[in-house]
Design a protein around this nucleic acid. Structure first.
Lengths: 189, 189
DNA sequence: TTGTTAGTGTGTCAAATGACACAGTTTTTT
DNA sequence: AAAAAACTGTGTCATTTGACACACTAACAA
């Protein structure tokens, strides 16, 4: 699964691909477990194989803000913390039972420095992922809450099914009740 | 000015810095001029020295959505279009008289391939800029409109002064009138 | 200079939203 | 099995917002 994911970013010679995959370790955590505690450094990149992660922060009023919900076949980390070795005030918890692959920073740096092909490969992935985030943020700002919900329903139906409504609502940037009104309106039509 | 900007990302040997700066060309455009027309490829990275750029798009209802307002000492481009040579439906226009430096894609690629120091340097800049965008997007989603306005007023007072209210409002994600109510409330206090 | 356009300030009103309250259901813990 | 906790569905109501309308001013072009 992780192999297919890497493949989607371009070709890579067998020894390099093996070297890359060899540094990724399988792990599992159960529902409710925190992957990242507050004020912890994020020392790894995570690739989800099953389940959903809830990435969130608290604003100055103590309200919990959902920054992202990450599902299977997607990577997650806090770039700033991972790259610059800074502690982050954000947190990350498992919504379901989650299985994933972990790549530690030290291994990440080893891979990046191994040879030119691997270095360029990693760089391309980072650029693609960050660039996609910027596109997503732009897209989001041009859509209403209802449109965002429809988009989510279309692109990630499994997430809508498996993740609690109040988390989906806060991901969309609204309240549980407003999301409810939207769903009611949609089923009526 | 551009030199100082590059410097802020780290050290670079003199010949490499000269090589880099040598490929950036000074340009100016007057108020109202479009830097990027709709469905055009974005073939350059721009570094602003003076004035403000309005980066926007239209949603499916034909409403103009402000994606960003770029001021002096900041870089701008549409990454996806620039890297993958795709036309973008977004547009970009000068709010004021704008002077800037331009770096063409061909020159960008030349610089990147010139030697390892330059390649790594460019890569670091790209990562930093994109990473900052993600952080900004996260921050934005945890703040109310009023807080975003106060933040903008504090971090970019000149932008608030020089850019029309309706553009600031749409940058903050609200209407001209609502921004007005916020300003009225703030001056009253 | 005059006419035209762009931008600003403000009021009204209908619609959308968030906060709260509570009941019913499912899941988890003891 | 019983109790507790988490989640879902729904109604009411005060507040906020966006849309519209209009007056006024500043910038710009003929």
């Amino acid at each position: 699964m992780l192999y297919e994911y890497f493949r989607s970013f371009g070709a890579l010679s067998k020894p390099n691909m093996d070297f890359l995959l060899g540094h990724c370790k399988e792990r599992e955590i159960s529902k409710g477990t925190k992957l990242i505690e507050p004020n912890q450094k994020v020392d790894s990149v995570y690739f989800l194989e099953e389940g959903f992660l809830h990435y969130y922060a608290y604003n100055e009023h103590g309200e919990r803000i959902t920054l992202n919900v990450v599902g299977p076949n997607h990577c997650w980390t806090v770039m700033d913390s991972f790259i610059n070795e800074l502690p982050t005030s954000d947190e990350c918890a498992a919504i379901n039972h989650v299985s994933f692959c972990e790549l530690k920073r030290t291994d990440y740096l080893t891979i990046k420095a191994k040879n030119k092909e691997l270095g360029d490969f990693i760089q391309t992935i980072v650029e693609q992922i960050l660039s996609a985030k910027v596109i997503e943020a732009n897209k989001k700002s041009s859509m209403s809450i209802e449109q965002r919900y429809l988009d989510l329903l279309y692109t990630k139906p499994k997430m809508v099914q498996e993740v609690p409504v109040h988390i989906i609502a806060s991901l969309l940037g609204t309240s549980r009740e407003t999301l409810h009104r939207i769903r009611r309106k949609l089923t009526a039509a």
